[in-house]
Amino acid sequence: MDLILFDVDGTLVDSRAFIVGAMTATFHDAGLPAPPRDDILGIVGLSLPLAIAALTTPAQQPLVDGLVEGYKTHYQRLRVEMQDGEPLYQGAVEAIEALARRDDVLLGIATGKSMRGLDHILATHGLRHHFVTLNTADNAPSKPHPAMVFNALRETGVEAGRTVLIGDSSYDMQMARAAGIRGIGVSWGFQPAQALHDDGAAVVIDRFAELEDALAALLGWPQAIVEKTP
């Protein structure tokens, strides 16, 4: 049995408008200059307190807890205003459904989002039933700590050598390496492809349509796919 773990922001969903908008409004509310857009997107993948701490100066560190709460409020506001929620990247549904049909694959999530945020995305897009293990900032230390992966391995009983993480950030690739699994980077996310290569991605793909072939090459899948009975 193989386990395929997905990051969420920048990998499955394009949440940059929500993240940048919420972070900018949060800093403005606190009377602080908003961090540059690239800096904001560069910390996506970390748990929220660490992400905001990384965007503040040493003198602003006492404000981090308040900024965290402000960010949550603004993110929820944007979800109400943008009723369709964070959009999935093109091909995400098809890739997930193709993998879910295999009888030799389990799917999971490893994200810096909260469980509440993850539940909202999976429910909005009707994807919850495809995933057997959900690991978030609520039940594990922030990436790049490998605890999310270790939790998933323990829950599923799959070996590290048969597990692959799909992600868009250097934090994802660092977490994969620390956990002793392989990582596939995606170029459509929030960090440049070279950063993913530099942090140990086995391969970086440009489209979801390339994912199954990349997994087959890493995991030694045969050409013929054995699918679950509908």
Rank of each mutant, 00 (worst) to 15 (best):
G157S: 08
R37M: 11
S170Y: 06
T26P: 13
K113G: 09
G180F: 06
G108V: 10
E86T: 14
Q60C: 05
M175F: 02
R102I: 10
Q191H: 13
T156D: 11
D213F: 01
A100Q: 04
N151A: 08
R116S: 13
R116Q: 13
V158K: 13
P49Q: 10
P87H: 12
P192T: 06
L153Y: 09
I4T: 06
A17R: 15
N135V: 02
S169K: 01
Q174Y: 00
K72V: 14
P62W: 09
G161N: 12
R102W: 10
V93S: 15
K143L: 04
F208H: 13
S142G: 03
M115D: 11
N139G: 02
F131H: 11
D104E: 09
E69G: 04
G183N: 05
V149K: 02
G200P: 08
R182D: 13
G200W: 11
R182M: 13
A179H: 01
A147Y: 01
E94M: 08
G189H: 03
V132K: 14
D199A: 13
D213S: 14
A217T: 13
Y171V: 00
I205H: 05
M82P: 01
M115Y: 04
S15R: 08
I225W: 06
T11K: 04
E227F: 04
E212S: 10
N135M: 08
I184M: 08
R128P: 00
I181Q: 02
T156H: 12
G10Q: 07
Q61S: 10
D103V: 05
E159S: 15
F190A: 00
W221G: 06
A202V: 02
